[in-house]
Design a protein around this nucleic acid. Structure first.
Length: 891
RNA sequence: GGGCGGAUAGCUCAGCGGUAGAGCGUCUCGUUUACACCGAGAGGGUCGGGGGUUCGAUCCCCUCUCCGCCCACCA
């Protein structure tokens, strides 16, 4: 006999081991059975190798697993390729922090490159494996034999090959221009790694005197410290106020440098004074203006963002923000400060370091993204790759059509070192290996010269961009590439459409000549129950492992699947997970019922031959469910899939089929009994199969257990055949008949309850179907109805006088008359409604008060108001509840 | 400034031309040999405001208000 409930804790690890040992996770398993099996592949968005599973991963990987398991059951050679990312800047940062925390005062620079990188590898060795273990807990059916890491030798070779090829094609080049410089990490970062944050600042209005003393120009700036690098002031060519000044020279108030007034469209006559100072080495717009006018580019900061270069000695070495104050003070002292205007404005920050980013003039490597983007744009326009939900392609297009060169070099040590070597004369040799670079150098110089390799590494997203083909063995022409590229579906979050999806499209098309995936499913962002983004600082993170411990992996998986529709956000509440845990238990108990009633699988049983109305009906319902689930999975309509399964298993199979089957199973008609047993067992099997992709553990366990009290199975559920049921099995006649019965019984129950007929009151009639035709129809289903709990009352139906009113209530059952009962019901309804509304108030106020953002932003009196409202609502609710209690007591 | 979402029951959401739905919560009733992680039932909504199209609008169009996100820019 089955236990009363399913115990995930003991079962899950056992089953996972069995799956893994069976080889079912590898596509070879399917190919062994059918060498012509169609390929199906998904590559995992590689998590940080040293990371651990958060709820977003749980969602993302659940959906990938659902798809993989589904296609595997459909007989495809299904590959879900796992792996991890070295996560350059993030990982290096962690290790640097560790160094700092050790208190030995040894920085990475003190250690030297080799020792530091070794240290990072050590940390990687210690902390890797965590997330793989956690994915196993989730039930992820990845092919671990193909696991990859972005710094593996194979993937590194792919990186070098791509870099060298693009360089030879002129699509990677070295250039001196402004980059986003992170002064804390001492590295360039890409546009995408910059986050604009609104901060308090000011416009300082400064007067720049004309060299000849004939006047002045007023300019405004939010960054006074950069004025040391000014090399011009620009005005709009059509701005009449400044016509006479164009071409004249100004005397820089602090450096004394002579700088010209230039005419340029960039200056907006509407803004400020209409004149703008130009600092080409410290502002992206000014850089362009500087190029147009051939202005000198004066760098006045060093890599730490301290003042440096050709500047007055008093500022040298000063921190940029101290310099800002000093410059403002100086201008005031000179009598040239014309005003200060407080503003809140956007300032760029590093997404990892959190410090203010400086536009900084350096040499970096760039990818010509504009060129690579064209085929990638076309592929989505042509539908060779589709986004799901569709609208995300707009986001993709928007970015791709306005793409800027991608800065791929990073002044870090953890990552793929750039395969470029420099000769003594500065000539660069970009080759896949040092030997090849030497050979190239020899060809140029005629003899061996010392070469030094570029110190920089590549942006971590450079190797991720190759993931769909590098993991399959490229540049070799492997079997895997032939069978599994392009991949079928990419499941990922919208936050990395630019970072990752777009770049995979570019490299995939360029190097493979084909899109890397046919479909991109953008999964939602998981938020907490009140819609807040989960974050450690808010303390509202939900740990997927904890949830798995408590409710089982299946319950978590079902919840995440059920909430993955077209929505962009998922508000995850623990209550919901509990509800789906209960759903699993419900199915478990249905199996238990089948076991108790000897509903054993009968291989000779053909559902097409079922005779009983009830069995013909459930057969059709099963077909419809299989169809809905299959279509839902094909379309990534995960919420529909979960809902169809939930409804069918709970509300159709358990609530109606098994209930209506009871009288047959307890009756004397042996043929009907045998048919019903076989049908019940068959439907249960279909449920297990259809539910398996979403709830693999519970279904696999039941598959095993039902075999133990029935006949042996051919194999595990994970490789069982997906139900492909003929539409002809839907029987409209049976559907109509059982549908009618269900509706009638519902009505009977509802009226009994409304009239307060106690279930124990058997003799007083519940209901009488009055029309002769109705009675006749009812009589034909008497066997099904009689044991429907208290509905045995229906026996009396036949005795009712013909032509009576449709429903008749029997004798009064308590102190209340019908009229009193109605009044009572009305009053009770009113009170419960009010209590409901107050509950809402209480919820709302309580949430506001516990929301850190609200508390931080709202004025004290608003917070107080909410506190009062909460107290008032609670008091009112208590009062109403008392009144309700009194009312009940009277009744 | 550009773009994308959203506003439907107390809460979380589905529906998207034809009598307003689900889950949870609330309330009532129920120890029925599958299941209290259960069963039966009830209450609860001018489908954000205003216009328009239509025989008919929660749904389509316009507009306003409020919330969320992304991109860009602000001397």
């Amino acid at each position: 006999m089955l236990e009363k409930t399913f115990d995930p804790k003991t079962v899950e690890p056992r089953l996972y081991e069995r799956w893994e040992a069976s080889g079912a996770f590898s596509p070879e398993h399917a190919l062994a059975r059918n060498p012509d099996a169609e390929g199906f592949s998904i590559v995992i968005p590689p998590p940080n190798v040293t990371g651990s599973l958060h709820i977003g991963h749980a969602l993302n990987n659940t959906l990938q697993d659902v798809l993989t398991r589904f296609e595997r059951m459909r007989g495809k050679a299904a590959l879900w390729l796992p792996g991890t990312d070295h996560a350059g800047i993030a990982t290096q940062m962690v290790v640097e922090r560790q160094l700092a925390a050790e208190g030995t005062n040894i920085s990475r620079r003190d250690m030297g490159r080799e020792a530091f990188v070794e240290r990072v590898w050590k940390w990687k060795a210690e902390s890797s494996g965590t997330i793989q273990g956690q994915l196993r807990r989730l039930g992820a059916s990845c092919d671990w034999s193909r696991e990859r890491f972005t710094l593996d030798e194979g993937l590194s070779a792919a990186v070098r090959k791509v870099f060298v090829t693009l360089h030879k094609q002129g699509l990677i080049y070295r250039d001196k221009r402004l980059v986003n410089w992170d002064p804390q990490f001492q590295t360039a970062i890409s546009d995408l790694e910059v986050q604009q944050k609104e901060v308090d600042g000011a416009y300082w209005h400064f007067a720049y005197p004309l060299e000849d003393g004939s006047g002045e120009v007023v300019v405004a700036t939010t960054r006074p410290e950069t004025m040391l690098g000014d090399t011009a002031v620009a005005v709009h060519p059509d701005d009449e106020r400044y016509q006479a000044m164009v071409g004249k020279m100004l005397a820089h108030p602090i450096t004394g440098r002579r700088i010209p007034v230039v005419a340029d469209d960039y200056a907006d006559p509407e803004k400020g004074s209409g004149a703008v100072k130009i600092t080409p080495a410290h502002d992206f717009n000014d850089f362009q203006v500087g190029k147009r006018h051939g202005l000198e580019m004066i760098n006045v900061m060093d890599a730490w963002a301290r003042m440096a270069g050709p500047i007055p000695a008093e500022y040298a070495g000063m921190d940029r923000f101290d310099a800002r104050k000093a410059i403002v003070a100086k201008m005031e002292e000179l009598g040239l400060l014309r005003g200060i205007e407080k503003v809140r404005h956007m300032v760029p920050h590093g997404d990892r370091s959190g410090v203010v980013i400086e536009p900084y003039l350096t040499d970096q490597w760039y990818v010509d993204a504009k060129t690579l983007a064209q085929p990638a744009i076309k592929a989505v326009e042509d539908g060779r790759t589709v986004f799901e939900p569709r609208n995300w392609d707009k986001t993709y297009f928007e970015w791709m059509r306005n793409i800027e060169p991608w800065c791929v070099s990073r002044q870090l040590w953890w990552g793929h070192r750039i395969p470029a070597w420099y000769g003594p004369d500065g000539a660069v040799f970009v080759e896949e290996s040092e030997e090849a670079a030497r050979a190239a150098a020899r060809a140029r110089y005629g003899d061996d010269r010392p070469l030094t390799q570029d110190e920089d590494v590549l942006d971590t997203w450079f190797s991720s961009a190759l993931w769909p083909f590098s993991t399959m063995g490229w540049p070799d022409e492997t079997e895997d590439l032939k069978r599994f590229y392009p991949t079928h579906t990419l499941v990922t979050g919208f936050d990395i459409i630019f970072f990752w999806v777009a770049r995979m499209m570019m490299t995939g098309l360029h190097f493979m000549g084909e899109v890397p995936f046919r479909r991109v499913f953008i999964n939602a962002l998981v938020r907490d129950a009140s819609g807040q983004k989960m974050s450690k600082s808010k303390g509202n993170v939900m740990d997927p492992l904890g949830l798995i411990d408590q409710y089982g992996a299946d319950a978590l998986r079902f919840t995440l699947t059920a909430m993955s529709g077209q929505a962009r956000d998922i508000k995850l509440s623990e209550q919901r997970i509990e509800g789906y845990r209960n759903f699993g238990t419900k199915l478990w108990n249905a199996a238990r019922f089948c076991q108790m009633n000897e509903c054993v699988r009968d291989e000779t049983f053909d559902p097409a031959q079922a005779k009983e109305t009830l069995n013909r009906w459930i057969r059709g319902e099963t077909v419809k469910t299989a169809r809905a689930v299959t279509q839902g999975l094909e379309a990534c309509a995960f919420d529909d899939v979960a809902n169809a399964l939930y409804r069918f298993i709970w509300n159709v199979f358990c609530d109606w089929y098994l209930e209506l089957a009871k009288p047959i199973l307890n009756g004397d008609d042996e043929a009907a009994k045998a048919e019903t047993r076989a049908t019940a067992a068959w439907v249960l099997d279909q449920c297990l199969k259809l539910l398996h992709p979403v709830m693999p553990f519970l279904t696999e366990e039941l598959w095993d257990k039902t075999a133990s009290f029935g006949r042996a199975r051919d194999g595990m559920l994970i490789t069982a055949d997906w139900p492909a049921l003929p539409d002809a099995w839907v029987d409209p006649e049976a559907e109509a008949e059982i549908g009618w019965l269900i509706a009638l019984i519902g009505e009977v129950r509802s009226i009994r309850s409304e009239m307060n007929v106690p279930p124990s009151a058997r003799a007083p009639l519940a209901v009488v179907g009055a029309q002769a035709a109705t009675r006749e129809r009812l009589a034909s289903h008497r066997d099904l109805i009689l044991t429907m709990g208290r509905l045995s009352d229906l026996r009396e139906a036949e005795a009712a006088p013909a032509g009576a009113v449709p429903f008749v209530v029997g004798e009064a059952t308590g102190a209340l008359s019908i009229a009193e009962f109605i009044d009572f019901a009305a009053e009770r309804a009113r009170l419960t409604k009010e209590i409901g509304a107050l509950n809402g108030e209480i919820d709302k106020a309580a949430r506001k008060l516990s929301n850190p953002d609200f508390v931080a932003r709202a004025p004290e009196e608003v917070i107080e108001e909410n506190r009062e409202r909460l107290a008032e609502a609670e008091a009112a609710k208590a009062k109403l509840e008392q009144a309700l209690g009194r009312l009940e007591a009277v009744a």
